[in-house]
Structures are given as structure tokens and as C-alpha cells.
Nucleic acid binder design. Sequence first.
RNA 1: GGUCGCGUGGCCGAGCGGUUAGGCUGAGGUCUGCAAAACCUCCUACAGCGGUUCAAAUCCGCUCGCGACCUCCA
Length: 497
Amino acid sequence: MQGILKVYNTLSRKKEIFEPLNSPFVGMYVCGPTVYSDPHLGHARSNINFDVIYRYLKFLGYKVRYVRNITDVGHLTDEVADSGEDRIQKKAKIEKIEPMEVVQQYTNSFHQMLKKINVLPPSIEPRASAHIPEQIKITQKIIENGYAYESNGSVYLDIQQYAAKFKYGELSGRNTEELLEGTRALEGQEEKKNPMDFALWKKASPEHLMRWDSPWSEGFPGWHLECTAMSTKYLGNQFDIHGGGMDLQFPHHESELAQSNSCFGCTPAKYWLHNNMVTINGQKMARSLGNFITVEELTTGNHVLLEKAYSPMTIRFFILQAHYRGTLDFSNEALSASTKAYKKIINGLKIIKTLKPDEGANESINSTLDAEIIKFCNDCFLGLNDDFNTAATIASLFNLLKKINSFNTNQSDINTIQKSTFELLQKTYIDIVENILGLVEEKTTNSSGFINGLLELYSDAKNQKDYAKVDKIRSYFKSEGLLIKDSKTLVDWQYEE
RNA sequence: GGUCGCGUGGCCGAGCGGUUAGGCUGAGGUCUGCAAAACCUCCUACAGCGGUUCAAAUCCGCUCGCGACCUCCA
């Protein structure tokens, strides 16, 4: 293992050493999207952040079971009044299709988006609607335990009862008494003993489309319950990591915590990780605010706020060059900077894969350079170990990249570092870029023989000082988005920036 | 109103008691048929005002500005 991993736990508000409950196994649950529209940059961020966490844990040798759900039922437009319409159903009515068609359509577009930005699929991707019996069972158990009550066919978690034994609000830093006093009764809440109580099961109104039988009524589960049902089903009553966006901290995750306590008598997760929001003009990007840009729009450039299109890997790089717990502001300038930086990283990847010291070289070792490279390699992991600080890791990566490039162009001599240092450099760079950050080449060429042949012609023309031909070949490359690089000792190509 | 967080050089973005973060942009240089690429150098900032300390962007207080959550949201 590569040093000690520390993670920021929302529950304790501190960085803690990561120690799985049952090493080497790690259980990780992350809240997925409610599938009623196309995914935007914010969804990309959350999924990329947790993808890197998943990849790094696996890299460290843990056996990770990663569960990420799809919410396809129970998510109302107005949770506080518990009288809102189901989000999926609302969309289905607008488009005049079945609710499950809405679910399928946007699940597909979610998956397509993830594939583009190179997010690995989770171990299990459960759907809320496929876990109704489990949710009913948990509700029954909570009623038995005395923390929930039935009212007119619906079932609510009784915060007052709960607060007598547990702390409601511990995850989001809220005070139960204040919550109980501060909230006034709103319309549509007559069934509740207390306005803070939240629904575990809702009786369906006659026009409600998605409905299931239950001991209390024909109805549907409350939004928070699905995650409790699915996480504990696949990961056990207690697991290691629960993740999601910061905006889910309250009430969603707080309620999940309460459900687990009142059903199983224990908190569900040891570490709670929350990624911060993408902002646009300083404001949170959100579906409800209508200020979002979808990943599709970003990659096509088809949006009024976009000056041009940005590739999926550029988006991935853009997200990773910031730490996951800070806000990240969208701007064309920042994305353009990422476009260049990403290409540099990938060109370095191409170089390091073929670079090697000369056989039987006998130069004396430059111990300063040698030590510097070892340090930068270690720094890459120090960043990751410090609460997955990919921004710090990428900074070290660029320091390594400079060394790689100068070896490649013979501006410094690769034979003056130890063979073991070179191997460390090569392994570190590839591991970090491809396996952990998940940055891969976007344009893959299967015609390297063809390219190399042309490069030979290019060199020949150059030797003959036939510059007209030289420029012509160069322009052919350029039209393919490739760039010929001349240096004193070699001619090579790379992706254009 | 309550709770929490943030304000870093032209832009993005790390750092969170003492060392050049890094990227993009801009300037200069090496190389080059010309370029490009690459490398080197420079532009050395931490909202403001106090305080603690040998030492503060980093800790404390106040002020100003911005945001998140308290309804749904990754």
C-alpha cells in the first residue's frame, strides 16, 4: 500500500485515517441520479469524483463493492409538503409516455454520459422500483421498533420518538429541538404528528401512476427509504463509505441515517463523503434553477454559454484539477485551459510508454535529478492520500511531465537516473494518469505504421532541404489534428493542442 | 432569520504556522530553413482592519463581499 489514506468524514467534520470495517473488503454506496432528465456537469462531477475514489481504493488493493443506485420512483417535486408529484410521473405526463419509459430513456443517457467521461460501472446498480418488498420490510421493522407510525395509509418516521434515543441532525449539523420548534405546520401535512416527520410510505392518490401493495395502502415508498433498503441489502447493515453530493446531506442522508438507526440500531456508514457543487457565475448549477449545461451540450458546444465544444476528457480533467470538496466554477476560460493541459498530460503518456534508457549506458548518476523524480512520484500519492486531493496530484504529475519531455527531446539525459528510478517514473505516471485519474487518449490511431512512414518521408525531405514538401507533409498532419515535432535527434508526432 | 462554508497573482486552482504548488495566458531565451513542440527564465498573490507568535495566506476577533443547506437537486 502506498502510505496512509486519510478521508474527510462529514459525520465527524474531520479528516480520519481510512480503516475499513472488514479489510481488505470495502463497501461503498453512492447516491445516483433521479432519472427524469439528461445529466449535466454537476452529475459528471459527482460521478467522476467517486470514480476516482473507487479506482484509487482498488489500486490500493482493496476489494471494493461499489453500489450506485438509480432513483426511479418516490422522488416528489415537493417533499416538505409530501404532496408533490412524482418527478418521473410528471415527466411521463408531459411526454405522454409510460413512467418506465422515462426511466429507461434517462438511464440510458446517464450511462452514455458516464461511458464518454470514462467512469467505471459500479459493482451493482440497483433500482428503487425493484426493491419495493425490501422497503416495505424496513418500514415494518421501524414501526415495530416504535419509531414510525401509520396515518391514513401513509407511514412516517417519528422524529420526536427518534430524538429521544438518537440525535437527528448529527450528520448535517442541525439541532433537533430547533428543528422541531422552528418548523411550522404547512399544508398537506395534517397526517403528520410533527412537521419534521418524513414519509417512509405514501398512500397513492387516485391519479398516481406508480403504486404497489403494502400492509398500509396501495402506494409508494418515500424517497429516502430506497437508499437504506439497497445499501444495506448489498453491503450489510454497516458499510464503509456513503457518498453523494453535498446537497444531499440534508434531508436525504440525515434521513437515511435515521432510518438505519431506527431499523437496525446502528449508523449505516463509517465514512460519509460529500462532493461540492459545480457553480456557474458563482451560483450552484442545478436542474431546478435551470442554469445547467448538459454533458451532451458541452461536448457539442451547442449552448449559448459555450464558446466552443469541449471533449469528454477535457471535462474530466477540468473536474479533477480541483479538489472534490471545493466548489468548482464553470467558465470557458477554465475549460480552455483544461483542454491544453489535458493534451499535454496525454502526450506525456504516449512518450513515457515508449521511452527507455539506453542498454548498457554507463553515465554517472545525477543524484539531484534522481532524487527529484522520486520525490515527485511520491508527491503524486501524497496528494491522493490526503483526502483524494487530485489537484495536488496533478501538480506533481506536471512536474514529472517536464522531466519526461526533457528526456524525450534529449534536453536532459535519461541515462543519468537510476534504472529503478526510471521504472518508478514510468509506472507512477501511467498508474496515476490512466488507472487512477482515468484519463485516456481520446483519439486513438490504428495507423501508426502509416504515420511512421509519412514521418520517414518528412525526414527525407528535410534532409534534402525540400522545404515545400516538408511544409506539405506537415499540413497533412495538421489537418488530422496531429503535430510533427522536430528536435535535434528525432522526429516524432503528437496530438495538436 | 438559523446552521455551515468560502474570498489566493490576468484567469482557473492547491496549500491551511516557517520551503517556487501546478495549469492556462503574457514577456524573454535556447533550439529551428521557417515554424511548432519541448525545455529554461520572468510577471512572486493570498478581501480589509486588528490581534496571537521568533515567524501567518495558514490561528483568533471584527468588518466587507459571495455562496450552500434549512423544499427538490450530484
